[in-house]
């Protein structure tokens, strides 16, 4: 099953490679991984999307906690949470595609952030599955390029991950 794991770690050189190395060394899956500094410059926050049986997820959480640079780990799937991912898609925007792409972009509440003679670049945020759905919905032959950030996640309401 898919799990979104949030972690706070020391903002130090090599901390990211310790997490990435743990996943490759122990054969765990990484679907996506995002990391950036928090409001506290000594801390980075990472969101990891992984899949595995409950036993595997339990081991992943334990192994992450064991890393010296990791301050806190939270499996967002243990409670209500929100996930958001950003995707930029460059699509053909000439001939039949021109109106079609504008319409699809509106339906998915995206924004066109760059317009060129023959292409649009569309910005789309949402859950991973919404971004998947957009890719499914538009004509594949129209896609020139896509780039996704991977998911960021946060707990709902009072669920707070903080030191």
């Amino acid at each position: 099953m898919k799990h979104i794991i949030s972690l706070l770690m020391e903002n130090e050189a090599g901390a990211l490679s310790r997490v990435a190395g743990l996943f490759s060394a122990r054969g765990y899956n990484i679907e996506s991984l995002t990391v950036a500094i928090t409001e506290d410059p000594t801390l980075s926050r990472m969101t990891l999307v992984t899949t595995g049986s409950e036993d595997v997820i339990e081991q992943i959480i334990k192994q992450l906690n064991k890393l010296i640079d990791v301050v806190k780990v939270l499996d967002l799937n243990d409670g209500k949470h929100i996930e958001r991912e950003l995707m930029l898609v460059k699509v053909k925007a000439s001939g039949v595609f021109k109106d079609e792409m504008k319409r699809m972009c509106d339906i998915f509440r995206g924004r066109i952030i760059d317009v060129a003679d023959n292409s649009y670049t569309i910005e789309l945020t949402g859950s991973c599955s919404k971004l998947d759905a957009f890719i499914e919905a538009i004509d594949k032959t129209a896609i020139l390029e896509t780039v996704r950030t991977g998911a960021s996640g946060i707990g709902r309401g009072d669920r707070i991950l903080k030191v």
């Binding site: 090599g14 490679s17 310790r18 190395g21 060394a25 010296i68 640079d69």
Partner: peptide
């Protein structure tokens, strides 16, 4: 050295 020992050290 930090990279090469990462998988076989506690820290």
């Amino acid at each position: 050295m930090v990279g090469i020992t990462r998988p076989c050290v506690k820290h």
